[in-house]
C-alpha cells in the first residue's frame, strides 16, 4: 500500500469491524457505508431516510462518535470501530436504560428514526450524563422524527440519564 494506493472501479474485499465482529465484504468503492451495513453485513437496524445527511436515521457510531453512515463510503470505514443499533444491548441482554425509557415513555411510534436516536444518545449520555433539556434538544435536532413531536423522546432521554446516573452513583 504505497502512496497512490490505486483501486480500480471494481469490487474489492474489505473488512469492517462492526459491533465487535469482523465482517468481510466485497464492495465497490462508491458503495455508501449505510448500504454496506444493511445489504452486505445484513444489519438492517440502521435505516436510510434521506441519503443527504439531514434526517439522521442512518446515524451509527464510528470510533464511538455518532456519524451519518449515508455520508461515508464503506471503504473509508476500514480499520474503524463501528457500532450500530444491533450492538446496543443492556447488561442482561435486555434493554439499556435508554431503550427502557423510550419504551416506557412512548418515545417511538413508527420506529424508523429510532435506531439513529438511540445510538446517538447512547454515546452522548456516556460523556454527558447530566444534560440540560436544551442540550438534549440540541443534540436531538440532528434526528428528524415525523411521528412523535419529540416530546416523549426528550422525556425518555431525561429519564434514561437519571437512570444511568443512579446506576453509576450506586456502583
Amino acid at each position: 500500500m504505497s502512496g497512490g494506493n490505486l483501486i480500480v472501479m471494481e469490487k474489492r474485499p474489505i473488512t469492517l469491524h462492526i459491533n465487535g465482529c469482523d465482517i468481510d465484504v466485497l464492495i465497490e468503492p462508491r458503495k455508501l457505508l449505510s448500504d454496506v451495513i444493511r445489504e452486505d453485513a445484513r444489519l438492517t437496524g440502521t435505516h436510510v431516510g434521506c441519503e443527504h445527511g439531514v434526517c439522521g436515521a442512518c446515524t451509527i457510531l464510528i470510533d464511538g462518535r455518532p456519524q451519518r453512515s449515508c455520508l461515508t463510503f464503506a471503504i473509508q470505514a476500514q480499520g474503524k470501530t463501528l457500532s450500530t443499533i444491533e450492538g446496543v444491548v443492556g447488561e442482561d441482554g435486555g434493554y439499556t436504560a435508554l431503550q427502557q425509557a423510550m419504551h416506557e415513555e412512548h418515545g417511538l411510534q413508527c420506529g424508523f428514526c429510532t435506531p439513529g436516536i438511540i445510538v446517538t444518545f447512547e454515546a452522548y449520555l456516556k460523556n454527558n450524563p447530566d444534560p440540560t433539556e436544551d442540550e438534549i434538544r440540541d443534540v436531538l435536532s440532528g434526528n428528524l422524527c415525523r411521528c412523535t413531536g419529540y416530546q416523549n423522546i426528550i422525556r425518555a432521554i431525561k429519564k434514561a440519564a437519571a437512570m444511568i446516573r443512579v446506576d453509576v452513583g450506586g456502583a
Binding site: T44, Y95, Q99, M102, E104, L108, G111, T114, I118
Partner: peptide, 21 residues
C-alpha cells in the same frame, strides 16, 4: 400500557420494506 411493538423497533429488529431480503 407501553407498546408490544417496541421491542423489535428498539433493538434494530424491525422489518421495514428494505429490511426484507
Amino acid at each position: 400500557q407501553p407498546r408490544s411493538e417496541d421491542y423489535r423497533l428498539l433493538t434494530g429488529r424491525g422489518r421495514y420494506i428494505d429490511d426484507i431480503d
